[in-house]
C-alpha cells in the first residue's frame, strides 16, 4: 500500500468536506493510504501571501512541507492552489541555498527544519502517473455515463517549468482519468481558460472575477454538459458559489452541478451518495441527481 500525507488546505475541509471524504475513500480503494498531516495550516493562499511578502509565503509553505518531511512521507493535495504554493515553495527551497538558509532560521524558532527530502503531489497527476488509467478502470464498478465539462484549472499544469506535465494548452492526462470512470469529456470553447478566482482577484475584484467564470459557464452550457469536473476546491467554489452570485448580480442562471474528480471517482466506485457531499453544494440540480440515480441504480442509498 502506498502512503502519503493528506494536505487538506482550507476550502476542502472547511467548505466542501465531501471532497476530503471522497478522496480518502476512493484512494483507499486504489491501495493508497492517506495519513493526517496534523497541524497543517493554510498553504498559504498564493494570491495574497506570495504577493504580499515572499519570505512569509515561503516560510509558512515550508513549515507545511516540514510536517510531512518529519513523517517521511510525500504530500498529497486535492487543490491546485495548495499544489502551486507547496510545489513552488518546495522547489525554491531545494534550489536556492540562500533562501533556504533564511527560511530555516525562521523555522528553527518554531522547532522545524526544511531538509528537502520529499515531493508534493496533486491527486490528478499522482493518479495519472503513479496509479494509471488501467488500474482506475479496473476499480470502477459503475461506469458513469455522463457528459462532463472538464476544468483543469491553471496551477495544476502551470508554470510548466515547475510542473513537468506536458502541454499546458492541450493536455490530455486529466481527460484520460475522467474517461476511465466511463464519463465523456466534452470539448468546449476555451476549455483551458482560468476560472477567474486566483491571484487574489476573487477577493479584490469580485464582479470582474465572476465575469471570467461566466465566460466559462457560457461555453460549458453551449456544449450541453451534465456537470463540471474540477480538481481544485477554489475553482469548485468559484463555479458553485459563483453561479449563485451571478444569478443575483447579473440575473443569469446556469444551474450546472460542480463535482470534484474525487467525487466522480466515488460515484463510479459505487460509494454512497451521502458520503460524497455532492448535494452539499449550493447548486443542486435535480435533473442531474435523477440521472445519477438512473446510472447507479441502488448504489445511491
Amino acid at each position: 500500500m502506498s502512503k502519503l500525507s493528506f494536505f487538506l488546505g482550507c476550502i476542502a475541509p472547511n467548505r466542501y468536506p465531501g471532497i476530503e471524504a471522497a478522496t480518502i475513500k476512493t484512494l483507499e480503494k486504489l491501495g493508497i493510504e492517506l495519513v493526517d498531516l496534523k497541524g497543517a495550516s493554510c498553504c498559504p493562499a498564493p494570491g495574497v501571501f506570495r504577493s504580499f511578502d515572499k519570505i512569509t509565503w515561503l516560510s509558512l509553505a515550508s513549515r507545511n512541507v516540514t510536517l510531512s518531511e518529519e513523517m517521511g512521507l510525500d504530500i498529497l493535495t486535492v487543490c491546485n492552489g495548495c499544489f502551486g504554493s507547496l510545489v513552488d515553495a518546495n522547489n525554491i527551497m531545494k534550489e536556492d541555498p540562500k533562501l533556504k538558509e533564511e527560511v530555516n532560521k525562521i523555522l528553527k524558532e518554531i522547532g522545524h527544519e526544511f531538509k528537502g527530502t520529499i515531493e508534493v503531489r496533486h491527486i490528478i497527476e499522482y493518479l495519472s502517473q503513479e496509479v494509471g488509467v488501467e488500474k482506475i478502470k479496473a476499480a470502477v464498478t459503475i461506469p458513469m455515463d455522463l457528459n462532463i465539462a472538464l476544468h483543469y484549472g491553471c496551477h495544476l499544469v502551470k508554470p510548466s517549468k515547475e510542473r513537468h506535465l506536458g502541454s499546458t494548452e492541450n493536455p490530455r492526462f486529466f481527460d484520460e482519468l475522467v474517461e476511465a470512470t466511463g464519463a465523456t469529456s466534452v470539448d468546449y470553447e476555451d476549455k483551458m481558460a482560468c476560472c477567474g478566482a486566483g491571484g487574489g482577484a476573487r477577493t479584490a475584484v469580485l464582479d470582474t472575477s465572476l465575469q471570467m467564470v461566466m465566460n466559462k459557464l457560457e461555453h460549458m452550457k453551449a456544449a450541453g454538459v451534465d456537470c463540471i469536473i474540477d480538481a481544485c476546491p477554489f475553482c469548485h467554489l468559484q463555479f458553485d458559489v459563483g453561479q449563485t452570485e451571478i444569478k443575483k448580480k447579473f440575473n443569469k442562471v446556469y444551474d450546472i452541478p460542480v463535482v470534484h474528480y474525487s467525487q466522480l471517482l466515488g460515484l463510479a466506485m459505487g460509494l454512497p451518495l451521502s458520503e460524497l457531499g455532492i448535494n452539499q453544494n449550493l447548486i443542486v440540480n435535480e435533473e442531474f441527481n435523477k440521472k445519477i440515480e438512473r446510472i447507479r441504480g441502488g448504489a445511491n442509498e
Binding site: G47, C154, H155, K158, P159, T168, A197, A204, T208
Partner: peptide, 12 residues
C-alpha cells in the same frame, strides 16, 4: 495591478 488571476498563460 490586482486584476491578475495568476493563470500564467502569458508567462507560458
Amino acid at each position: 495591478l490586482w486584476y491578475c488571476t495568476t493563470c500564467y498563460k502569458c508567462q507560458e
